[in-house]
Simulated scan of single mutants.
Amino acid sequence: MALPGAAVFERAGLDTWPGIEVEWDGDWVRRATGGYTKRANSVQCLNAADDGDVEARVAAAVAWFNARNLPPVFRMTPLAGPALSATLERLGWRTIDASHQFAMPLGPTAPDPLGRIFAVRDPVWLAIAQQLSGYDDARQARLEALLAVIQVEACGVAVFDAAGLPVASALMAIADGIVVTGNVVTAAAQRRKGYGAAMMATGHAWAHAAGATIAALNVQADNAGAQALYRGLGYTHQYDYHYRLAGTT
């Protein structure tokens, strides 16, 4: 099965990881979600050909984020035009968080016996996700605000150890037949014990039953352990992206 290009994955990402506030400027989209993650609080271009009047549009984006007390951030994928990249470089925007898009065809998968599926706003799963992520109440509230605006089919996934304690969790959502996984976390003391793979198998089984035919996720370029896990499950590298932040410090 041939996998789609960056435009399809990025459009699916807008639906599975939505902004609370969204404003379009041609094929550039600005999104704000109270500061929870750079991805949901950034501007990105969805069409490399929409590359005109860049400096004024960057300035407008900066003003938009400043008005919301958020740091101006650009998500730079292969869909960003060369003039945008050159302008941000000239203005001194720094590059951070080099990352990869991974994906694979999704076939029938058996859920792990230790895995469970939850509604994304189920208080039990929210408590598990907060505990494993180590979020304070303010950050957890920002996550829950994002979950409240997801319009596509989504679930929370958790894996429990033999004693019934939660050891791993993730969020999965489906758009355009693509299940996108995010917020993957395994308890530090429980890593390299197969719980991450169990969690992914459980979520993949849910997604396939819900009609997904492709699985996708983002992983940071310096996270070798996560990349090894995903490659072992069948994911392959699709393209790279990074973020640009205003300023040099």
Rank of each mutant, 00 (worst) to 15 (best):
I128A: 01
R90E: 06
V157I: 15
G115I: 07
A187D: 14
P113Q: 14
S169P: 06
W125A: 11
S169N: 00
D50G: 10
A205Q: 13
G35H: 07
N69E: 01
R121M: 15
C155H: 11
Q227A: 10
V179G: 04
T236V: 14
L3Y: 03
A80K: 04
P123C: 14
Q101D: 05
Q238F: 11
A224S: 12
A129F: 02
G225N: 08
V124Y: 04
L245Y: 08
G194P: 10
Y230L: 04
A61T: 12
T77R: 15
S42V: 12
W24E: 00
W28R: 03
F74S: 12
A198Q: 15
D53V: 05
A119I: 13
R30M: 05
R191P: 02
Q130I: 01
S85L: 09
V157N: 05
T37R: 13
T33W: 05
V184C: 04
R11P: 08
R142N: 11
P4K: 08
G107H: 01
V219W: 02
M104F: 03
V73N: 09
N47Y: 02
T181G: 12
R57M: 00
R244I: 13
G5I: 14
A212W: 04
H242P: 08
A48E: 08
R39M: 08
Y239N: 09
L70V: 03
V120Y: 14
A221V: 09
T95I: 15
R11Q: 08
L165Q: 15
M104H: 05
R90P: 03
A119T: 06
W93K: 15
P113S: 07
V43L: 11
G164M: 11
D122K: 12
R11S: 01
L46D: 02
A127C: 07
A207C: 07
R57P: 04
Y195H: 12
Y230P: 13
L229Y: 02
A127N: 08
G177F: 10
F9C: 14
G164F: 06
P18I: 14
D240M: 09
A188Q: 03
M1Q: 03
V29D: 00
G34C: 11
D176M: 07
W64N: 00
L229H: 01
R11C: 01
M76C: 13
A154C: 06
D112F: 00
Y239L: 01
R30A: 04
I20Y: 05
S99A: 11
R39Q: 14
C155S: 07
F118T: 10
A129N: 03
T186R: 00
T249M: 01
A103F: 13
D15L: 06
T213N: 06
H100F: 13
R31T: 03
T236E: 09
A7Q: 09
E10V: 15
A60K: 03
K38T: 04
D136N: 12
I178H: 01
L70S: 00
D161F: 12
L3K: 04
G196W: 06
I150L: 15
F102E: 08
H208W: 11
L233K: 11
L171A: 07
R142V: 03
P105E: 06
V124S: 06
G211K: 02
V167L: 14
G13W: 11
A158P: 01
G156N: 02
T236H: 07
